[in-house]
Design a protein around this nucleic acid. Structure first.
Lengths: 255, 255
DNA sequence: CGTGCCAGGTGCCCT
DNA sequence: AGGGCACTTGGCACG
């Protein structure tokens, strides 16, 4: 059980034999070779021969990469069924998943390299600066949005949709906040408008305010916002991080 | 200039020396090893040590993959600046891009494997069953949507947004079609409504119809559709493919 | 399971 | 460069 095994096969047969013995094991397999591809599922695609890099992960997630570009040219998310067979002039690999039913077929005419890696990674991935951070910061410090604001609920589910932050202003009016971590577009404005409409219908139109909370708004979206009688408040993920850190320090200081 | 070069380095120094000599060349480089990662840019992230696979492509697109899962844990799209340095107990790699300014730093404590691949792929990728196909099919055969429909324009740009297909029905009313290749949700309905509003304001509300063209609609979206006085027409990418193929055959038959 | 919605989304095309 | 929008989007949380 080597951690790493690499092969530069002399023939397709050799490549096939080696891959067949490893492909169902729980390891990462990398294949570099010349293949053509057919995919059929939600959509369908085809690409003729070219030199590409195939990665089969431990959970049978499959990625086929061209020598350039960020995105894989073809892929299969995890839980696909894997099969391999030796054809007349090629090694064929089928990766199948159900729900949705999708088939990815690679036909390798040439295999230059195979690598098998028994690697482990149990680390926890931490991400900062996402929308969730903004939400958390506003709960910790509502005055970051405006004085006298009270947060009543977060992720409030209504008939069709979810209100990011739901509160009440110093005059007793309901405040609906839609958060965006990036420059907000029209969808954000319309999303907010829908929520304001729904709540407004319940509680009375002039008892409900809608605030788009984001680092910026696209110009057309801002016009739309004004037309729809909604408000904008600048707030960035970085501002959120600062607030969260401040309150964490406070919490620690207590002990 | 070997097509493939692989190294199983005995030390970090050896790995560093080898990588340094190759990292700026136009080839695909794969590194397998134990690293920790920091990213800072639009957002920020951090992950402690774990065994991962790094891919540096010819265009300096960078992908860092865990041994499981479809998505890279960290990455940098193409055109990033690459630098490498030997630290006390690690090999450090920085991948930087401007606009937006983002920095990805990998700190390898251990490198098990390095592979360099001089590969070429100039094949053309063909994709079927996308929204574009539906558009093409409707232009070729408008009666697939309804009898007497005439297509006037495709991808019609209006004040804010793009109308997928724009036509006129047998009674002379304008028909605005919003296409979706998958089950349509609320956004699709609202998108359509916006276009109908804009055109309706110009030409008179009751001279404009809006049709959502998709394989299916989510139930809430359908309710919203009805409320907003819009229509739904079932049409799938597969139906589109059939129409396109039929017309291709016709075209060939002519010659 | 469907429904809603975020994402360092990415990519493509247009003005 | 900014805006609009599709994508085999993927992924997650929740009814």
């Amino acid at each position: 059980m080597e951690k790493i095994t690499t092969v530069v096969p002399k023939s397709l047969e050799e490549a096939y034999t080696f891959l067949k013995s490893r492909i169902h094991e729980r390891m990462v397999i990398i294949v570099v070779g010349n293949c053509r591809v057919e995919y059929e599922g939600r959509a369908a695609s085809r690409i003729s021969e070219g030199e590409r890099i195939l990665i089969i992960k431990k959970d049978k997630a499959v990625l086929l990469h061209r020598p350039f570009g960020y995105e894989p040219i073809n892929w299969q998310p995890s839980s696909s069924i894997v099969s391999i067979s030796l054809q007349k002039d090629s090694v064929r690999m089928d990766f199948i998943r159900d729900r949705p039913h999708e088939v990815l077929r690679l036909e390798f005419r040439d295999i230059f390299f195979i690598g098998c890696y028994r690697i482990e990674d149990h680390a926890v991935f931490e991400m900062y600066g996402c929308e969730k951070d903004m939400q958390e910061a506003i709960v910790l410090e509502p005055e970051a949005i405006e004085d006298g604001l009270n947060i009543l609920e977060v992720e409030k589910k209504i008939s069709c949709g979810v209100i990011d932050v739901y509160g009440m202003d110093k005059d007793g009016r309901i405040v609906i906040m839609e958060l965006k971590k990036d420059k907000a577009g029209k969808e954000a404005v319309l999303q907010l408008k829908r929520y304001v409409n729904v709540i407004g219908r319940e509680l009375g139109k002039n008892r409900v305010r809608g605030i788009l909370v984001a680092p910026d708004v696209k110009s057309d979206a801002f016009k739309l916002l004004k037309e729809l009688n909604l408000e904008f408040k600048r707030f960035t993920p970085k501002m959120a991080r600062r607030i969260i850190r401040k309150h964490k320090v406070k919490t620690i200081d207590k002990y």
